[in-house]
Design a protein around this nucleic acid. Structure first.
Lengths: 123, 123
DNA sequence: TGCTGTAGATACTTAAAAGTACCTATACAA
DNA sequence: TTGTATAGGTACTTTTAAGTATCTACAGCA
């Protein structure tokens, strides 16, 4: 796809963080390097295929680093690039906004939940 | 859809600003109230159907206000709610990040363009 | 010897998002 | 009287994103 044209900056940014998983993956990479399996366990609903696919795209966009340890069984670590870090600072604000927005809407009587790592649902 | 559960704040935020058009629409509503037609002209590629649909969803999420003037021909104005304004402050940063990211990538030899309202492509 | 964990790839299917086409109704201008 | 602008609605199709199932290869453990 040669020569992609955007009409506004946010369109370009959304091209990078859009979709169901990328923003979630990036938020988990905030402040820490994670192995593939650690990411997968941090985001239980994601499939191996989607995780790999999204990480590849983020790598191609220069947002995450992929470090391969040449050993068996394989070990691969993902971390944010400088560009990824600058983006993640804003993403973190979106994360905080989402949390307070949920709190606001819950106090309005809506039923929306944010699961913390602690309070798991045991149904 | 009763009882939606999110695992991380950014997931909830993306539920609101995700998709191809919403972030763009919101950025255009920054600092100004716009009529439907003004929005449509500001975002030439969007269709009437998508514009209306996305605005309805943003209204349901408490992000935009819809003010109907009971007159013929119809007049409808869209503006940001307080909640919309708090979200838009962050969205504006994503916009700026996108612009500088494009500049960065262009200096790297990639061909990506950001059209300002001035410099139209005359091919 | 067979099972688990590691990090993928690939073909295929399903679900969701976006786009197209065509419809309403009325005021105003040429 | 025909065309334009206003702000939509609705049925249908196409495109894109996401999900499912199954495959590789090797080390270490019981």
């Amino acid at each position: 796809m040669p020569d992609k044209t955007y009409n506004i900056g946010v369109e370009a940014t959304m091209d990078i963080i859009g979709g169901k998983w990328k923003s979630i993956i990036l938020c988990h990479l905030r402040q820490q390097t994670l192995r593939t399996g650690e990411l997968r366990r941090a985001i239980p609903q994601i499939t191996q295929k989607m995780l790999t696919q999204q990480l590849r795209e983020l790598e191609n966009d220069g947002i995450v680093n992929r470090k391969i340890y040449e050993q068996v069984p394989p070990k691969v670590e993902y971390s944010l690039t400088d560009r990824g870090n600058s983006l993640n600072a804003i993403l973190h604000q979106l994360c905080l906004w989402g949390e307070s927005n949920i709190a606001e809407r819950k106090s309005n009587g809506e039923t929306i939940n944010l699961l913390s790592e602690e309070q798991e649902v045991n149904s």
